[in-house]
Design a protein around this nucleic acid. Structure first.
Lengths: 142, 142
DNA sequence: CTAGGTGCAAAAGGTTTGCGGTTAA
DNA sequence: TTAACCGCAAACCTTTTGCACCTAG
């Protein structure tokens, strides 16, 4: 990662290294706060601001992506392959969904004149664990 | 809209009526604050909290949708037909994109066990106005 | 040596909440 | 009549910023 940081003019610091390691360790799309709590185990003096700074640096040098779900806290994802996300309505988990390469560009009726640069697809529903649970429980929801 | 509100146990109030009218009037996906400013013209004493309450009621009784762009303020959209959004990177505008009915369900390699309930597709790029402007200007961006 | 990074605390931006008074049904 | 709603202000949560000190290059 040193080269990646350097390529964009960022310095290599122990905090950035550690935050990246934390991100790679448990690929569950943690929020900044979750990263902060995990990072503190190895680097007890790290601050929230530094975690944000480190995550920002990782995003800028393309070692991580930001993942947005509704208005909840930003989540971070070190999977840089082209992929989408599945959001579980029940447990709140975020799962990577592989993207069938280049399959989408022509799919939408984008009116003339719009210059599309980036697609983002989110799929909401129940993850395998929660979908078997809820079909067993047959719970009544709002 | 009275029936729609009543159907979900909401009362019909002048504030809710007015906020809905404001939303229909200018379909540019305004933020709560923009709705607030526009609503004040007709209802000078309305408060931000009430605007949030009204928008929330409209969303809950399916007269409006919430539209999320990155981490900016929530936007509101009274177009209840199935559609996606195009976000202009240059002017920040949000545009409705018609959805080719049911065209997407099979497109993604969703692993077995995931129960998809809702798809959300955002397309980022330049709107017609900005894309002609930028091709004329040939500006160097970050 | 020094530009950039760190940690802290305080502020910002968007949204939600608690509360006393008001109103639709 | 009364539960729901309103307006206000204060709280809340996530993210950003200002600043003094520190450190990688």
């Amino acid at each position: 990662m040193n080269e990646r940081l350097a390529a964009r003019g960022f310095r290599f610091t122990s905090q950035r290294e550690h935050v990246y390691k934390v991100l790679l360790q448990e690929r569950d799309h943690p929020t900044a706060e979750q990263v902060f709590l995990r990072a503190k185990k190895g680097l007890p003096d790290i601050s929230m601001a530094t975690v944000y700074n480190c995550l920002d640096a990782l995003v800028k040098c393309r070692l991580a992506r930001e993942v947005n779900v509704d208005r909840t806290a930003m989540r971070y994802c070190p999977n840089m392959q082209d992929h989408f996300h599945f959001y579980c309505d029940t447990c709140g988990g975020v799962f990577d969904i592989e993207c069938l390469a280049g399959a989408h560009a022509g799919e939408f009726a984008i009116p003339k004149g719009f210059a599309a640069r980036r697609y983002e697809i989110s799929i909401h529903g129940d993850c395998p664990k929660c979908s078997t649970k809820s079909s067993r429980a047959k719970r009544n929801d709002s």
